[in-house]
Amino acid sequence: MKKIKNEIDLRDTAINYKLDVQDIVLALAELLLDGVQHGIIDRQNGVFKHYTEEHYNQIISEYFSKRIFIEEIANVLGLSYPATVSWVKALIASGKIEGIINEKEGYFVPYDEIIDKERKLQMTGDEVANKIINSFDIIQGLMVISEYCKRGELVRTIMNQLNQIIETIEGNFPDFKHLESIRNWYQNLTAYDRDSYILETTANNLEYNIIQWLRDIESISVSNSKMYIDAFEASAEQVVQIEKELENTKNKINEIESNYSKRIANVLLIIHKESGLCIYNYKFGPGELDPDLLSGFLSAIQSFGVELSESDQAEMRRLLYKDFEIYIDEDEFIRVALIGKGIITEHLERLLSNFIQKFSGNYTRALEKFTGNIKIFSDADLLVEKTFKIEKKPEQIEE
């Protein structure tokens, strides 16, 4: 819009009428309030900008139907900032426009936009609240399947629960990164007799995946909860309820991972790297595995990995052996393998790393000057049980 040129100089007008500038301003203000004149008094620049009624209404309609910065109006109309603020306040007072001025931020916002924004915020708040509720529902559903896996429930029962979870995720979190994985699990289970009980290996693998899904859904629920609390002024009671639910959820997921880890941990082997000899083994649960056969297999497969890549850094960390997964970690003198009846969790990896540090610390001299005597490591059972939090000492593998 071009600047309006129809201006009255306040000083010249005062001189012409032999009045003070203040008298002219007061007179113009009365005329504006009565609706006889249409324009803007700009005291800083000493002018009165006069508009026809039609043009005046056009300006009001164009500039005050949406949020706008006062500086923008001042620049376009050629007014000083204070004059523009005063004019907008006068328009509000006269009822010509409805809204508020945010003088700190320097903008005007109409009431319609405020009301619409509040409505949108309320709608968004409801949406976020629903997402929080739905994320907790998904978590609860996954926990139920975890229990089914632990008990070895019917395939049909597990599939029904999975289907409900898929529908909830599709309706609320269609971009959830594990959605396709959950669909694949449902599809894979269709190959089984639905009235049969889920196999232990399948159940363990499914539960491992469930733990990963739970962690990421938990992350979504935490993010949405924080958004709801910070952005939508949740009541103190709501905050307490949400935080309590989040804490309970976190504890339950940790418990599920811990119980799964204890259940699938099968055998721990410690191999002296230089000699290749199995110097210690520990059996967590039932099952027959030959420690010497396993240690030979591990040494051979590790050598193969190094030779294949011509690098000492290529030693394998995870291997499959029959229906077991083997996770391998090491330090200077020993290579330690944890054999599980399912996929080894990060929880078990951390425990194993902690165990290796303690074992090497306790037997540093024996490992440095190893003579082939493995009996000196037999009292490591207590260290295993303490590190892996085993309540009852299991039977050790017969050598």
Rank of each mutant, 00 (worst) to 15 (best):
F297A: 10
E118V: 03
R67H: 06
N373M: 09
Q164C: 07
L91K: 06
A27M: 07
L91P: 03
H272S: 03
F284I: 07
N205M: 09
E274Y: 01
S65M: 03
Y186R: 14
I339P: 02
G141Q: 04
I356G: 06
Q22Y: 04
E245T: 12
E7Y: 09
E105T: 02
Y260M: 01
V267S: 05
E105M: 06
Q396C: 02
Y148H: 13
L142R: 01
L142N: 06
Q161C: 02
N205T: 08
L26A: 11
Y107V: 01
P174Q: 07
Y327T: 12
H38G: 04
N266K: 13
D137V: 07
F173V: 11
Y260F: 05
E167P: 00
N6E: 15
V240Q: 14
I24E: 10
E98Y: 07
I70S: 07
R119Q: 07
D381A: 00
Y192N: 13
M159W: 00
T202N: 09
V85I: 15
I165K: 00
I132E: 05
L79P: 12
V306Q: 05
S61E: 15
E233K: 12
I115W: 03
E105F: 01
L338D: 10
E368S: 11
A83L: 02
V109S: 11
Q22E: 14
N248H: 09
E315V: 11
K89A: 04
R43N: 09
A129E: 15
I397T: 13
E113N: 08
G99E: 08
Q396E: 10
I182M: 06
R43G: 01
K386E: 15
I210F: 01
V384Y: 01
E391I: 00
K341E: 14
E237S: 11
Y148A: 09
F333W: 09
R183H: 13
L199T: 13
A27C: 05
E315A: 08
S311A: 12
Y63S: 06
W213E: 15
G35A: 03
L121W: 09
N160K: 10
D126G: 11
S181T: 13
L189M: 06
K392I: 08
G125P: 06
Y282Q: 04
P286W: 00
I344N: 12
A191R: 13
I356Y: 04
Y208L: 02
T371W: 04
K375P: 03
A231D: 15
K244E: 14
E349H: 12
N259P: 02
T168M: 13
K358Q: 10
T52L: 10
G342E: 05
L10C: 05
S80I: 03
F232E: 13
V25R: 06
I397Q: 09
L26H: 11
S219E: 15
E153Q: 13
E391Q: 08
D312C: 01
A74Q: 04
T249I: 03
E233F: 12
G372L: 04
P394W: 00
A231F: 14
S360A: 06
I70C: 07
V267F: 08
S61H: 13
Y107W: 05
D331G: 01
I115F: 05
E180M: 10
N266S: 14
S235G: 08
F377T: 04
W87S: 05
G296A: 08
K283C: 02
F333R: 10
